[in-house]
């Protein structure tokens, strides 16, 4: 199984997907319509780009704080969270899945990103 399928098969994961850095393609597995998956990939790509830029700015301001380059991010909603490493995303139910398990899997298996791609 590939990374997206492995993630989507984890208990408590609603959906997992991957988008191209150019933003022209995406794949998604789980409980999401094509429209939702398209929106999710647009949102995740946009936030990843912002986080990457913000970390670059911190570096350019003279603070190499060990955060550069950024590898990913998590946003925690009331019942759901979104986890992103490089160009892979995962929507999870807070109550039914271990955030540590999902993030460990993603950090170990999703290849690192090149700054120029983001």
């Amino acid at each position: 199984m590939n990374i997206v399928s492995e993630l989507a098969a984890m208990e408590g994961v609603m959906a997992a997907g991957e988008y191209s850095y150019r933003g022209d393609r995406f794949t998604c597995e789980g409980e999401m319509t094509d429209d939702m998956a398209r929106m999710a990939s647009i949102m995740c790509r946009s936030t990843s780009m912002a986080v990457h830029m913000q970390m670059d700015m911190i570096k350019n301001l003279g603070h190499d704080c060990g955060c550069i380059p950024s590898r990913g991010w998590i946003v925690n909603g009331e019942n759901f969270s979104v986890c992103v490493i490089a160009n892979h995303f995962c929507f999870i139910q807070n109550e039914s899945v271990s955030l540590n398990a999902v993030m460990s899997y993603m950090r170990e298996n999703v290849p690192g990103q090149e700054g120029q791609l983001v």
Partner: peptide, 14 residues
Amino acid sequence: GFYPIKGFTMVGFD
């Protein structure tokens, strides 16, 4: 189930 946003995590290189 997403709103209100509770937290944010940034995974840096180190």
